[in-house]
C-alpha cells in the first residue's frame, strides 16, 4: 500500500476490513480485505465501476453500514462513536433537502438536532450560505432552486456543524458537465479554506484526478482496492490543469487500474 510516510494524523483507518451483506440469494461480498489510512486534510477519491463497494465503504465510515470483518476506526474511535461525536458531514448524490423547510431552515436542521443556541444557528447558517455562494437564498424553498443550487445547499448543510471530515457520495453525479465543473472548482476552494479531510466517491476519472490528493481505484466482485495513486499535482488547481501532461498521465494510470481490476471483462 502507498500510505507510508508524510501522513500526519490518521483520521480514517481500515485494516483488513470486509463487509458482507446477507441477502435472499446468499451472501454478497461488498468489500473484502480493505486496508487504507486517510490522513488529516487529505482529499481522497474512490473510483471504480458500480458494485465495487466505493459507496459501501463511505457508508461504513459514516456508520450507516457495519463491517463484518477487520477493523475500521474514525478519529481513533468506532464509526458509531464518531457519528455520535458528530465527526463528519455527509453529502448524498441527491440534495435530499426537506421541501417543507426553507434553504436556511434545512441548513439549520442539523444544528437544531445537535442543540446549538439560536444565535449560533443563525450565525452559522449565514456563514455557510456565503461559503457556497448562496447568500440571499436562505428564504427560498428547495423546489424554487436549480439542481446545482440545491446540491450547494446540501453541501452547506454538511458544513454547518463544522465536522472535520466531509464524506461526499457522487455529489455531482446528477448534474450537467458545466455545473459540475463549477462545483468541482468550488469544492477545491472550500477544501483549501476549511482544511477538512474529504472522502469523495465518483465514477468520473477527470473529476477524481482534478480534485484528489490521492485516488483509490476499486474493482468489483468482491469489492476491493486495486491501486492507490498519489497525485503530484499542486494544491492550487485551475480548471485548465486538466490539459497538462501530469494530469493526463495520472488519468491514464487510473484508467489502467480500472481496466486491470476488471480483468478480461472489458
Amino acid at each position: 500500500m502507498k500510505d507510508t510516510a508524510g501522513i500526519a494524523t490518521p483520521v480514517i483507518e481500515a485494516k483488513g476490513m470486509g463487509l458482507t451483506f446477507e441477502t435472499n440469494d446468499g451472501p454478497v461480498h461488498a468489500l473484502k480485505d480493505v486496508n487504507l489510512t486517510v490522513g488529516k486534510g487529505e482529499f481522497v477519491s474512490f473510483i471504480g465501476p458500480s458494485g465495487c463497494g466505493k459507496t459501501t465503504f463511505l457508508r461504513a465510515i459514516a456508520a450507516l453500514e457495519h463491517p463484518t470483518e477487520g477493523t475500521l476506526t474514525v478519529n481513533g474511535m468506532t464509526p458509531d462513536a464518531a457519528r455520535q461525536a458528530r465527526a463528519y458531514g455527509y453529502v448524498f448524490q441527491a440534495a435530499g433537502l426537506y421541501p417543507w423547510r426553507t434553504i436556511a431552515g434545512n441548513i439549520r436542521l442539523p444544528l437544531e438536532i445537535m442543540g446549538f443556541s439560536r444565535d449560533e444557528q443563525e450565525e452559522r447558517v449565514e456563514r455557510v450560505l456565503a461559503l457556497v455562494d448562496l447568500d440571499g437564498f436562505g428564504r427560498k424553498f428547495p423546489w424554487q432552486l436549480s439542481g446545482g443550487m440545491q446540491q450547494r445547499a446540501s453541501i452547506a448543510r454538511a458544513l454547518a456543524f463544522d465536522a472535520d471530515i466531509l464524506l461526499m457520495d457522487e455529489p455531482f453525479g446528477a448534474l450537467d458537465e458545466i455545473v459540475r465543473d463549477r462545483l468541482n472548482e468550488e469544492v477545491l476552494k472550500l477544501w483549501a479554506r476549511t482544511e477538512k479531510t474529504i472522502g469523495f466517491v465518483t465514477h468520473s476519472i477527470p473529476e477524481a484526478v482534478y480534485l484528489s490528493t490521492r485516488i483509490v481505484v476499486m474493482s468489483p466482485r468482491p469489492g476491493r482496492i486495486t491501486d492507490v495513486i498519489e497525485s503530484p499535482l499542486p494544491k492550487d488547481r485551475p480548471l485548465d490543469i486538466r490539459d497538462s501532461p501530469e494530469f493526463i498521465a495520472i488519468a491514464h494510470r487510473v484508467r489502467e487500474g480500472l481496466r486491470a481490476g476488471h480483468g478480461d471483462e472489458v
Binding site: Q84, Y90, F92, G96
Partner: peptide, 14 residues
C-alpha cells in the same frame, strides 16, 4: 420519508 433523508438524520446522530 425517503431512505436518504432518514440516513441524513442518522449521520447527525438524531
Amino acid at each position: 420519508s425517503e431512505r436518504m433523508q432518514r440516513d441524513l438524520m442518522a449521520t447527525w446522530g438524531a
